[in-house]
Amino acid sequence: MAKEFAVPFHWRRFKERYRLIGSRCDHCEKCFYPARVICPGCRRGGHMKEIKFSGKGKVHSYTIIRVPPEGFREYIPYIIVIVELEEGAKVLSQIVDCEPKDVKIGMRVTSCFRRIRTENETGLVLYGFKFRSV
């Protein structure tokens, strides 16, 4: 992830990345992140509505990135987690304010708003949700 894109590439994702908004199917009541137009279970029988996730959940799995992709060198080592949100959907992001040795499966976390990285050429600062321990 270091190819640099035009501003709309990031702008159109503000809702999902800044406010953790996904979708919920009225028919089967399943929640999805990121938002989907079509419910994979109900297809046209379903009806998707926006949902703002609480940001509360628990760590489902984790890893510590030591060899970074382009654009992330200054942040290593950083912790990547899959979090199972209380609404049932899972998401992937980083854990902050936590030592690599302290992260555990099952740990309770809540989302927070953080910088992801800064692009070199455009100078664009990219933000998004991360998690911290509660």
Binding site: M1, R13, E16, R17, Y33, P34, I65, V67, P68, P69, F72, Y75, Y78, I80, V91, L92, S93, Q94, I116, R117, L126, G128, K130
Partner: peptide
Amino acid sequence: ETEAYFGAT
């Protein structure tokens, strides 16, 4: 957009 964006490799 939901994995690589956050620094996953």
